[in-house]
Amino acid sequence: MSELKIKTMAEFLAEGQAPEVLFWVGCAGSFDDRAKKVTKAFAKLLHNAQVSFAVLGKEESCTGDPAKRSGNEFLFQMQAMANIEVLNAYEIKTIVTTCPHCFNTLKNEYPSLGGHYEVLHHTQFLKQLIENGRLSVSGGTFKGKRITYHDPCYLGRANEIYEAPRALIAKLDAELVEMKRCKRDALCCGAGGAQMFKEPEKGNKDINIERSAEALETKADIVAAACPFCNTMMNDGITQHNGSSAVKDVAQLIAEAKDL
């Protein structure tokens, strides 16, 4: 496999050029082992579609989402304003991100603090690339496979994006099977609201156990995710149930179908 070439905004600027989009990798996408694979898969797809994109690299910092959902408005706004300063200095217009939390924060919570960008979730962006004929997908590998899709709260209910990821799965020629609760009724994976970073409160079950059981009920070969936290939560849950379904991000599925 050829070495992945990733350029930072700083490098673009040094060459006096501007990329088409900024890929906001996010903390999970940068540091979490499962999420890093998604980052890579998405970057490969961008290359394949000949999208000129940049990352911020070490200039990227947490959007502040987990701080805000924990109630630390100060820390959130400090992070946001620092990020906005960087983004505005580079005159960023369009941002694409693989994390629904980053997506939601950048899109909805940055504008009133001075950060105005067109923000896209990677499933939306990939769908656009396919529609514009820049990216082609054929099902091959996934033909006849059952895939269920878990709606991330911050993509689904929070921003009402239900169709883009499903449209991508439809391109795989696989059978999309819905869980009992899906789209606006989808059950949370348990990670949101900064729960990812703490022990759950007392209860009789962990939320990801409940949700992954529902995913397993569909007898899907693959549980498609579109959020790094859901990805981890669903994978942990399925492992605990000794389930055999693989959890993969939609971008990974597309990249695999293209043998990238």
Binding site: S30, V55, G57, P66
Partner: peptide, 18 residues
């Protein structure tokens, strides 16, 4: 360090070569 985990911002691009 600008991330919810104790990772160094300098390592943000490590995924490229991982």
């Amino acid at each position: 360090n600008g991330a919810p985990w104790a990772f160094n911002a300098q390592d943000r691009l490590n995924w490229v070569s991982d």
